[in-house]
Simulated assay, not measured.
Amino acid sequence: MPAAPGTTTAIPKGTGRTLPRIASTLAVISLAALALTGCSVDTTSPSEARADAPKGAAAFTGGEGKPGSAGRNAGGTEVPVDCEKTKCIALTFDAGPGKDTPELLDILKKEKVHATFFLLGKDHVLKHPETVRRLAAEGHEVANHTWTHQRLDTLDKEAIHDELARTQDAIAEITGEKPTLMRPPQGRTDEDVTAVSKELGLSQVLWSTTAKDYATTDSALIEKRTLDQAGRDGIILLHDIYDGTVPAVPGIIAELKNRGYTFVTVPELLHPAKPVPGTVYRP
């Protein structure tokens, strides 16, 4: 399960090998406390990434040339979202796809919202190839969340590579493209994870908002937690595999639109910068 925001750290190798599988909020809290003993990992915010982008950078285009668009100008040309001027927020979903993901996609299509999906390989991508294909076809950003959701900071480089590369290959076989973004399970990363991510052309993406939807089926609570934490240039972390999450999404989208937010994918949030492999992005 993901740890709370602000606990992203490098933990000495082997620390997590003897820890049991996370199955409760208490376990998550314990791991968060353990994380504080590690060394911090440098992160880059979306605003910092945009500020460092080369002047006159080309307009963002997503996979297969799909534009990250805020609309069309008078000439009919797609206009990319400018999150320096626009109040942007990114909606992301981890650990799918699952049985409820098609319903979520219906909601996003109706609301004209594109999201970023960090997919698990073994028990999700392989079991739901049609959903993965639909994600890509409908303009969502398809990203990597490892093969089996092991904490990467507890593995050696070879195992880290295996966890990420197998999911890269599985997604590419379905969509024709390998992801450029990944999210480490629990947000746990270190120098080895960064090195392997860079080697595989993957940027690391963390978050600023979490509803801890893995610990509740209360959709109203998930909605409230998300809205309470939402902010400009934020990255919302939800999971499309838990029963309470998808029913909460329409209310989240409606209220954030009412507050003046524009929903973007993670690459759009960074535009005109391009995600740099190995870099850890966090609002």
Rank of each mutant, 00 (worst) to 15 (best):
D100E: 15
K99I: 13
G75R: 13
E48N: 05
P46H: 13
C83T: 05
K87M: 05
E111R: 14
S45H: 07
P46K: 13
P97C: 12
T131G: 02
T86S: 15
G76L: 09
T92D: 10
H124I: 00
R134P: 01
F117V: 00
T43H: 14
F93D: 08
V113F: 12
L104C: 08
T116A: 11
T61F: 06
D94A: 09
E138W: 04
P129K: 09
F117S: 02
A74S: 13
L135N: 01
A58V: 11
K66E: 06
G38F: 10
A35G: 15
P129D: 06
G96S: 07
A35M: 13
A136Q: 08
D42M: 08
K87P: 01
C83Q: 06
E130A: 14
N73L: 04
E111G: 00
G98W: 07
K112F: 05
E64Q: 10
G75Q: 13
G71H: 10
T86V: 13
L135T: 00
G63A: 11
A74P: 00
E78N: 10
V132L: 04
V125M: 10
T43F: 14
S45K: 07
G68Q: 03
S47C: 02
G56V: 08
E138M: 04
E103H: 10
T43V: 15
E64F: 08
V41F: 10
A59G: 04
E48K: 13
A74T: 07
P54F: 11
L36Y: 04
G68R: 05
D100M: 06
E64H: 14
T86I: 04
G98V: 05
K122L: 14
P54D: 14
R72C: 00
D94G: 05
V41I: 15
G38S: 09
H140A: 06
V41G: 05
V41M: 15
P80A: 11
T101Q: 09
E78P: 00
E138I: 02
T101L: 09
